[in-house]
Design a protein around this nucleic acid. Structure first.
Lengths: 257, 257
DNA sequence: TTCAAAGTTTCATTATATGAACCATAGGTG
DNA sequence: CACCTATGGTTCATATAATGAAACTTTGAA
């Protein structure tokens, strides 16, 4: 593994921790040597990617990340485009609605509006959603090239529940159905008791960049709500794609690969 | 230089560019070999820190940066705490007000409210402000330890205008005056025609983490406005420090119950 | 004061990054 | 259309930078 990825692995550990981590602990978690860990941290700190708390000497995410995040948002205003649409969809459905963005092999939740119902689905921002086990994942794959779908099929199908798709054929069938339907359906494939519908957000050239999804307790699901919410989520995803990239976006699911 | 810093240098180049950059151009700008540049970019891309545009093959900042920026903001809600205060200060002064955060050796502008006057100071977000040549820098140094101030004195005093402080003694005198006064004053030390007053935002243990500053055309400056705005900027900076860290500005906050 | 755990430094060893030269492809030009 | 050039991408012997075991220092709790 390259040195750069090792360093970025430390950042990932810090991201997943809710407090500053000490050198020894970080080295243990990452399974690097203490000296190596320290050198990497110092180099990251010199660039502002991590910072060391004065008192505890623990390391935490640094200010440079906020700057860079802002810079990216300026050039690629995902949040600004997505938020109003997600809110509207949450209004219309009364369920928890969230947006995800593709990042390094999985979908990461970037914005959520929770349902106001007492029995609701709760999601944490930044959470990683596997492509093979969520409505968002299905929708993303359905909007991807066959080559990409195949590359995912070659990976491990971690089983989260009894209904998590297992194996290439199952997943391909789901992708096919999703393409026909125009939106994806997940029946408790990641977590028991949670069902979702989702649709992909398309970027330049029709390439998917993320998704929006409606998640609800399985107890409230009926074929009618699935179809109603599915249609809504598809329309809203399309709306975001247009807002983001204007007319340059190709229509959903028109694949010339 | 370490490999990690080289990779992060590429990210910095992408941050300063308003469009995607090609491999060759990036290699030229960074002065690395093409093969090296490519390997670094691929590794960064695998982690989502940069992404390659499908069409032009150019590289741009990646989605991981937004995730990480959000993660940092969650744990360290600088923006949320600062923005209302900066807005209020802009109201009160009628001038351009901005906040900076210390990041890897200099202060970076993170939030700005522009004056509504026709003749106003304009700042770009993310812009780096040198510690030795801005009101923000003076305020930050004044709130820092003498050790830190000395370490800055050892560096190059790049001259931006005729009044940019030159040499250790000049800077130390400014720091001393700033400490007595409670806020800093810059008289066109970075750019001709622009004067500023600033005060530091303090974090845990009284350690400065950034500043807020009021910037105005030198033509509007009088001793009275300087004193009025200086007092205001000091009070508002203090207010942010309290909002951020409550009473525990002297104590570590990570162990909070 | 003592002890254990965490942080820090060192340096011989090893693995990894490097870059000159190469190939492949695309777009522009006479 | 053939040619040229600029760019992205690849290879591999070499040089350089990363590694980690061990020694040392600091910290903080008992």
């Amino acid at each position: 593994m390259g040195t750069v990825s090792k360093a970025l692995g430390l950042i990932e550990l810090l991201r997943n921790s809710d407090q500053a981590l000490g050198l020894t602990e970080l080295a243990r978690l990452a399974d690097y040597d203490k000296a190596t860990t320290r050198r990497l941290l110092l180099e990251l700190a010199a660039n502002g990617y991590v910072e060391q708390e004065g008192e505890t000497r623990g390391y935490a995410l640094g200010p440079a990340l906020q700057m860079l995040g802002r810079a990216r948002e300026n050039r690629f205003p995902l949040n600004r485009s997505i938020q109003p649409v997600v809110r509207e969809l949450a209004e219309l459905t009364g369920e928890t609605v969230h947006a995800t963005e593709y990042c390094a092999g999985s979908l990461a939740s970037i914005f959520t509006v929770e349902s106001s119902k007492a029995n609701r689905v709760i999601l944490e921002n930044g959470q990683k959603l596997p492509l093979h086990a969520t409505a968002s994942g299905f929708a993303f794959l359905a909007a991807s090239t066959d080559t990409f779908v195949e590359s995912i099929c070659k990976k491990q199908f971690e089983a989260f529940t009894a209904t998590t798709p297992q194996g290439r054929d199952t997943l391909l069938e789901i992708v096919k159905q999703t393409r026909n339907r125009g939106y994806s359906i997940s029946n408790q494939s990641l977590e028991d008791g949670v069902s979702s519908v989702a649709a992909a957000i398309l970027g330049v050239g029709g390439k998917p960049i993320g998704t929006i999804a409606v998640a609800m307790p399985a107890s409230r699901v009926t074929p009618e709500t699935l179809e109603k919410f599915g249609t809504l989520v598809r329309q809203h995803a399309q709306h975001i794609s247009l807002r983001l990239f204007g007319k340059s976006t190709v229509q959903p699911f028109s694949k010339a690969s």
